[in-house]
Design a binder for these strands. Sequence first.
DNA 1: TTGAAAGCGCTAACAA
DNA 2: TTGTTAGCGCTTTCAA
Lengths: 354, 354
Amino acid sequence: MPSIQDVAKLANVSTATASRALSRPDMVAAGTRERVVQAAQELGYQPNVLARSLRQKETRTIGLIVADILNPFHALIAKGAQDAADRHGYTVFLFNSDEEPAKELRAMETLRGHLPTGLIVAPTSGTRAHLRTLPNLPVVELDRVSGHPGTTTVTVDNVGGAMAATQHLIELGHRRIGMIVGQQDISTAIDRHDGYRAALKRAHLNYDSALVLPGHHREDDGYRAARHLLTLPEPERPTALFVGNNEMTVGAVLAARELNLDIPHDVSIVGFDDSRWAQTMSPPLTVIAQPAYDLGRLACEHLIGQLGVAHPATPVRVQLQTELVIRNSTGPPHTADHAKRSSRPSLGPSPHSR
Amino acid sequence: MPSIQDVAKLANVSTATASRALSRPDMVAAGTRERVVQAAQELGYQPNVLARSLRQKETRTIGLIVADILNPFHALIAKGAQDAADRHGYTVFLFNSDEEPAKELRAMETLRGHLPTGLIVAPTSGTRAHLRTLPNLPVVELDRVSGHPGTTTVTVDNVGGAMAATQHLIELGHRRIGMIVGQQDISTAIDRHDGYRAALKRAHLNYDSALVLPGHHREDDGYRAARHLLTLPEPERPTALFVGNNEMTVGAVLAARELNLDIPHDVSIVGFDDSRWAQTMSPPLTVIAQPAYDLGRLACEHLIGQLGVAHPATPVRVQLQTELVIRNSTGPPHTADHAKRSSRPSLGPSPHSR
DNA sequence: TTGAAAGCGCTAACAA
DNA sequence: TTGTTAGCGCTTTCAA
């Protein structure tokens, strides 16, 4: 690997001039500049980022910790952030916390040694404590908020989204609406739960805690919770389910299928988060869609934007809107008064539309 | 951020000793060692990776370039690689090429400045040329091979997988089997095409080039190709489709739905790559499953394993097996001799808008 | 077993 | 406009 010394030698200038010619062209005479650039090209010179960063105490590197890169929602966030970083000449270090605070801490420690210019994190329950390890590091929280004071947050309107989902079911005529909710120490789960309650209240429906089951955001949790709710004795069984995230929604759908319940005839389902399979599943799922890519993009842009700036008095709180996408997994309830259709040959592929 | 100087001062030793105490404990007297470790802990010292790497000319960093992090197959690869790197104390720089050689080159250039210890790449058509920019950098190719001489490759048996898929269809009684194949400058696409041909040949079936349509690995390509194949006039229309990757398979399924063709009654479909939605789709898809996580893991382990070693005479070629997972998207053909069922209600009118 | 000193490649004061 | 020089934080000779 050629160094700037080699370039300088070939161009017959000092290393300082070579450095300037490449990084601050306007500080150097046109002729010299050209010689240096020419030499650099000839040697295939690529500056050593490590040396530069060490000297400048500025790495142009951003740490990004997402909860689970295998979840398309988080993958899309990561892509949005990475694309944005790239546009601004930053490089992203991507880590997975797998929803485990311990892993998140490890990621932060690793990151710290690399002296990132800033950090974007989709918090776990441990984030607030962990962030105290990294004072003076500009942080943007993404998707969820940890409650750490002073950090910029980029989220969606989870309360509003959950209300829209619940209200959609209510408007279809549902009165017993179950919710499969995420961990109650994660802000999104709390907010979605709140939105669900608020929508019920507005419609003067009772909140029945027996219809609200917690999960840890995994498919399996959704499956188990749905199985429980959907096998409640008839008057108690919910006619609709609002599921708090994408993975759990898959589980809920599988549970319904397994119980031979037709969606939406026997049970309506609304999920949170849109995704490829929400569209291609049968039936295509009604969901609350989130602008995941923009979430990542904006988090990154805000982080970069506030880098130079001194600590702003009031931290920025960006909130994006969600969108209710009505597909075919929701419909009016068919309760006991309707003859229970017995042998539907599973769930025929339903019309796919958007 | 405390530096090793601070630690040294607090422990009353020179920086050299402090460094040794932390990195090579056995070179230091027990008492001194303890004092240093104690001091480091007290200060929350974390070594500056940049300075260390600059000095040692060794970054313990691995570059990873995948084709598309939004594709669960690649996401799983990335996770496998990252987990493995982590276990060995390496940090991964993850980049997306988005299947574009130009983006891949940019990623490599960025990477180069960071002096990665090694590189793992899922090649595009440009990789072979680009790798010449990075001589002396240990490289492992993943999933696909670029033909760059001397690099270790970790792939699956694409020929075998494609043969298994095709043979499965043949055994079910299909005689006209269409294939939607990937870009013919990507090794996996070539291999899968070869496997398809080989299986036909072994069964003494003609290879009909009219039944083989190319695509660029995107859902949309699969959709268009399938639409074309499935609307061929009756005697020519294939009764089964083998689709060369996961994204295109989704497109093919959507096309079949839109044409009101029942899967597998009217057309059988086998995809390459398993995934969440392959399982949850309706019908659940028969696929050739690939060990994506292990692909990533092994690529990383081989890279790390060969780091110290001088250039091995014969490059390593790891090949993993695929597995035919039979679900419900394949069945025996029902050709013209069967009465064509006209109005299958289950399929529903499927206005798939795009 | 420890310390002094050099140097990785780069950029930024400062001087010329 | 250019060059000289120092130093970012660390590890590693070399010497004691």
